[in-house]
Design a protein around this nucleic acid. Structure first.
Lengths: 341, 341
DNA sequence: ATGGATTGTGCAAACGTTTGAAATTTTTTC
DNA sequence: GAAAAAATTTCAAACGTTTGCACAATCCAT
């Protein structure tokens, strides 16, 4: 194939009878260079399609304009939305995004981090795995002077900026909505106790009940482990077969809510009349199911975009000491599954 | 922060009283180098955590071990599955993946390509946008000697390897299944005529009808433009209100099928008893809806993995003349929406 | 005219690695 | 024991860019 020899600064310099340094400076309109020279060089460069060898530039400047992005799972509506926002945001600022997934395993996350570091990304954006507690592999980044920004699933063991959803408030609003709809006995199928988001949501749930003097019961709180459809189904069964069954269920995530809905449909229990259901995350499926599933939207796209903007800002400022917490407001999307009145 | 000075080959050489070149070769166990020397250097490197400056290596070798991946849409079950497979495959072979999306716009695709090229990826994996016909921006890649592999949505205007699903066969099997189930009047809501996959599926549909001497009618073929839920809904209405309404509908994709199901549910037309429905792609939603939507699985993960393996092979062989077509077998997933008997 | 700014340009080193070829040392052969 | 062969190591250039500093040229004020 053609693979024509690329034009370099040296070629331009020789051709124009100037030095390489002048050519280099002219192209970036350095104030030292005469306007005529600048014009001459730029015209020549344009005419001959000069494009700087980015590898040489990166090497010289010791940066890549690449950003690493690690999520627990790629095939996941929320995370792919975040990635989409991050990529679009990065593009606007002239950065590229290297994507990797941890499969929610600490081991995979660690190797992904190492690979990112080895391939010299300028910074890292990460939503940690369920298994991540200490964060030594992330500290390696900071030690190299490369900023890290955490989003969604975060650890407090690492001093970095964090972009999170206000899980507490989101859960609070969801439960308050159920209360407003007249539900009296509201259960919560919650996530793992080690995961911060899950705890925040549980706290929001509890606070909403307290603030409105609602009945509470430890029997109404069920702990997911895998956070999947089956658990939703099983816990729903448990809840409804107990001697004091709830009349509404707030679920840690839409997938779990889906299992709940499935059980209710199978048992011909009317939603939302007999039992109300609210999920979390507002996945695509929430609008697809029938009745539509009320859910708390997390604005994944915005989260991705703001995370990357923050990260790039840190990269540019050579700042790795920042610990700002950016909270994205959630939005309760009300659909049929909780609209009794 | 620390940001300790990185150890370089020069440091090792000086410390060990050898030359830089010896150190370099020793680390890669070059046969010219004495075993003792190799051991000495490797031990030293290990002990002091020497890690080569990848930027320098890349510059020197003129490659990055990064691969560009462009999809029409990131937040999309099928494409995120492909990306997942591509990333996992790349990881195994020591490559990273830069992800970008075209939003199905030629303009965005072109800039994404340029960015990828400018950031010196070693090769490109792409599923083209609906708007892409000529492929000049892709040719730029080949002209630079960088291989391109197309997958799923492809153009024949570019001579590259292609990894595709056997759309024809997938459609054929889907329609044959409907025939086997006893449906007599089978309609097809098809995709755009400019898109190859859509044409293949339409051909498979037609061939299945012919092979089984089924009734055909041009009125039973509807052309989508946006390929969304609404179109499915509207075309379903049109079809069923015509004077010769079909009793089964094969849809270009699950989203369209979803619209069809929605219409049927609203009109209380029994699925699958009165009308059978089959989609294509086997999105998550297919198992979520009720009744479950029969669909043709495209094995996205495998497609991503095989595409990247092929691409990396071309990169390693410096081969950009390959035009191999890899066909991934589809698999019909039968669910309630078409299971009459 | 002389000196001091000011302006524009070039020199050369530097970034860290790889690699062909030359140089050195060691081993083999007759 | 000298020449040839083999084994090991070093030299130095190269990759393309950026940048501190020196130099040269022009201008202005005295």
């Amino acid at each position: 194939m053609t693979e024509r020899k690329k034009l370099t600064l040296k070629d331009i310099a020789k051709e124009l009878g100037i030095s390489i340094s002048t050519a280099s400076r002219a192209l970036k309109e350095h104030p030292d260079i005469a306007d005529d020279t600048i014009k001459m060089v730029k015209d020549f460069a344009e005419k001959h399609h000069y494009v700087p060898n980015i590898l040489a530039v990166n090497f010289r400047k010791n940066r890549t304009y690449n950003i690493g992005l690690i999520v627990p799972e790629l095939v996941h509506h929320f995370f792919s939305t975040v990635i989409s926002g991050a990529i679009d945001g990065a593009k606007k600022l002239g950065y590229n995004v290297l994507v990797s997934q941890s499969n929610d395993l600490l081991a995979d996350e660690t190797t992904a981090c190492r690979t990112m570091l080895a391939s010299s990304v300028d910074g890292l954006l990460i939503s940690i795995s369920n298994e991540t507690l200490e964060a030594d592999h992330l500290k390696e980044f900071l030690e190299e002077g490369k900023p890290v920004v955490q989003f969604d699933k975060i650890t407090d063991h690492l001093n970095t900026p964090k972009v999170i959803v206000d899980d507490f408030e989101g859960a609070y609003q969801a439960v308050k909505h159920l209360i407003d709809q007249g539900y009296k006995k509201i259960a919560h199928i919650r996530g793992r106790r080690e995961v911060k988001n899950a705890n925040e949501r549980a706290l929001g749930y509890q606070k909403a009940l307290e603030d409105h003097q609602m009945e509470q019961s430890s029997d109404w709180i069920k702990d997911c482990v895998h956070i999947n459809e089956q658990e939703g189904y099983d816990f729903c069964e448990e809840l409804l077969k107990s001697q004091n069954p709830p009349d509404a269920i707030f679920c840690i995530t839409d997938l779990v809510a889906l299992g709940v809905l499935k059980y209710l449909k199978e048992k011909q229990i009317a939603v939302p009349q007999e039992v109300g259901v609210v999920g979390f995350s507002n996945w695509k499926l929430a609008e697809i199911v029938n009745p539509g599933l009320s859910s708390v939207d997390q604005h994944g796209y915005e989260m991705g975009e703001r995370s990357i903007v923050k990260l790039i800002q840190l990269i540019k400022d050579h700042n790795i000491e920042n610990e700002e917490v950016i909270e994205i407001k959630t939005k309760l999307i009300i659909r049929g599954s909780s609209l009794k009145s």
